[in-house]
Amino acid sequence: MLTINNIEVVYDGVILVLKGVSLEVRDGSITTLLGANGAGKTTTLKAISGVLRAERGEVTKGSIELDGKRIDRFAAYDIVSHGVVQVFEGRRVFVNLTVEENLVAGGHVVPNLPKVRAGIERVYSYFPRLKERRQQQAGYLSGGEQQMLAIGRALMSDPKLILLDEPSLGLAPMLVEEIFGIVRQFVTKEKLTVLLVEQNAAMALDLADHGYVMENGRIVLEGAAATLRENSDIKEFYLGLNEGGVRKSYRDSKRYRRRKRWLS
């Protein structure tokens, strides 16, 4: 569905953030993009959704194709009508609008009103708590409810591909479970495709079918989620387990020697 070929992203004309990233997201799958802070995960998502330009970033090399069609030159609002929508890190709901108005704004690209109404009902069926709060100002929702609203709002544009940026950030583990469960339903029931950026590698790899690991603006590792879970580097650096699957102590870490291999 989505193919990224060797893209480079430059901010402000000088700062090279992505140094040749390639990845593929298959139809109807959940693909996860893992990596530490500053690895370039969010920039990759913004390159796809086209909001990069509003931050003075630019895709300078390579291409992004959606079902064989190049979308890396499209304006952000155009990319949404092609069925790709991004859920930003840190929720970013429209705080001054009510829950329902947030959803209406999310369905902006849907041309007719009955479809928008049906979309709102669909969101409420996944997140009944939003229905209870429909007339409340979104700024006063709890963090978990805001995340639900952000995801529901993205669903309103009737997308084929959702780009989810750190939905687990700052939420209680139970809520994260609930939200990840719903994301799983999007794929099984609604036939959506998901590209998930996460720092919580354990949860992301449980949910995803396929995974990529980024470091310093490059993809350093790729594989089926099940394979990645068994990879010894992933275990050590992202899941915090040693070879035997036991939680490791930082004293035994050979972090620097091992990481060097990836950086060169």
Partner: peptide
């Protein structure tokens, strides 16, 4: 920015 990402 978010409005833009919602297709507005």
């Amino acid at each position: 920015q978010v409005a833009m990402a919602m297709g507005i």
